[in-house]
Computed example of a mutant assay.
Amino acid sequence: MASSKKWASSISSIASLIYFNLIIFQIPLFRVPCRTGICTTPIELTSSQLIASEIFPAVVVKTLLYPGAIANAIIKNASIPSYNNLLNDYNLINVKEAPVTTDLQYLEVLAGSYFSVAGAFLGLLKYGRVSLFGMLIIIWGLVKEAILRKPANTSPLKSVYMYPAMSIAVVCAFSSIRRDVRRLMRSCRARRAAKPPWSSSKSKRK
């Protein structure tokens, strides 16, 4: 019992850390139109809404964006962006004047992005269910948009898309929930215990 708890705790901690890095370093998970143009990460969607609604001051949004901006600069072998110019780099200067129709159309993706970003931080404190909830809402919004609605813009660069990294984020979000990991481990052990060993089944045939 103690070993299963230890394994579940280790798996949960590693999964929470991987999920946090996926979110905070802005690994592209999806592609949807937004107020700033095209958003590919939950932080981009969340930041555009925070700036437009003025719920938090701009310094909080820039702090949220800066790790991902540095990571993108390193990947593209570009210069490190200036902290003071982040809002301009992410097209957030005039986001208040942008129409809200796009956000309303992708409301599920927007809501899921809020939960995903919040869950990334809560997961480090061992509260991982928020992350999974946010991922499921995002997936539902993307699937609904792709199936139930006809795309208004046929351009492949502006159409709704789900990147392969989304599957990694979902697995990490699920694995960050310690209770669910323990239940999965118990069910696997129960199946192994219920399955007769090969030697005994072979002897019965003889």
Rank of each mutant, 00 (worst) to 15 (best):
S47F: 10
K150D: 10
S175A: 12
D89K: 00
D103I: 01
S201G: 06
I75T: 02
I18V: 15
N88R: 08
A73T: 03
I23R: 05
Y66K: 09
S10A: 07
L107R: 06
P42K: 00
M185P: 04
K202F: 14
P67F: 08
M185C: 00
I139K: 07
T46W: 03
G37T: 04
F115G: 00
A111Q: 08
F121W: 14
L104P: 09
F20L: 07
S79D: 10
N153R: 05
S199W: 10
I14E: 05
T101D: 13
L22F: 15
S116M: 14
S9R: 05
G123I: 02
V130L: 15
N91R: 08
V160M: 08
G134N: 13
L122I: 01
A169N: 07
L148S: 04
T102P: 03
S203G: 06
L104I: 14
S10P: 03
S82Q: 03
A8E: 09
L136V: 15
S79G: 02
S175Q: 03
E54M: 01
G112T: 02
I23S: 10
L184S: 04
I23G: 14
I38L: 14
Q49T: 03
F133S: 09
T41F: 04
I74M: 07
R149D: 04
K158R: 13
F25L: 15
F20M: 06
P42T: 00
A71S: 10
I168D: 07
M166R: 05
I23H: 09
F174I: 06
S16T: 12
L92M: 14
S199C: 06
T46Q: 11
P151Q: 14
M135F: 12
I80K: 11
A146P: 03
P81E: 08
V60A: 12
S12K: 01
L110W: 08
I177G: 10
A52T: 13
F121A: 09
K158H: 12
A71M: 13
